[in-house]
């Protein structure tokens, strides 16, 4: 076998292995077993999740946020539309945190059904909007003040 043939064979083999690996990752249901966060429904359904450190993700239910910045305590409810979990956070959530926003919290679900966390992460949507939809000139001056 000539060097050129050997090299082409390597090329075909590398492409085949790469293609198979990509196909496997893309088509397998890896994402079902390996999740970055649990939804409230999943967390409530899984009894073994009690007292285990997990991430819980969902929307901060509007009207549930009780945030005492000085005491560094925040209470709110994470919902996925079907189920909801009350969350007690020690420490201040990040600045962008508010009601109606997506959030992921790291901590443990207590036997009393309250999820205790000291780490809140805010999920930003893929939307980038100017404040209030004002024309750019207006907003820049408004925000600068």
């Amino acid at each position: 076998m000539t060097e050129a043939m050997k090299r082409r064979l390597f090329g075909v083999a590398a492409l085949a292995v790469a293609g198979a690996a990509l196909f496997y990752v893309g088509m397998s249901d890896m994402g079902d077993d390996l999740v970055y966060y649990w939804t409230p429904s999943e967390l409530i359904a899984a009894a073994e999740a009690k007292e285990a450190t997990v991430r819980l993700g969902g929307m901060v239910k509007p009207g549930t946020l009780d945030w005492d910045r000085d005491a560094q305590q925040a209470r709110f409810t994470i919902t996925d539309g079907d189920h909801e979990v009350p969350v007690h956070c020690t420490g201040n959530p990040p600045q962008m945190f508010r009601e109606g926003i997506g959030a992921v919290v790291e901590g443990k679900l207590g036997t009393d059904g309250v999820f205790r966390t000291d780490r809140v992460m805010v999920k930003h949507s893929n939307e980038y909007e100017a404040p209030d939809g004002h024309p750019p000139e207006v907003q820049t001056t408004l925000v600068d003040e």
């Binding site: 090329g11 590398a14 790469a18 690996a21 893309g26 390996l34 970055y36 992921v104 999920k123 949507s125």
Partner: peptide, 27 residues
């Protein structure tokens, strides 16, 4: 060349990671 072809598998995985899996990063 062979290593580059193999390493490249991760580019579509990185690109689609936000669609395939639950993530904090926005889509």
């Amino acid at each position: 060349s062979v290593a580059t072809v193999l390493a490249y598998v991760n580019i579509p995985i990185t690109y689609f990671s936000v669609k395939w899996w639950r993530s904090l990063h926005q889509i």
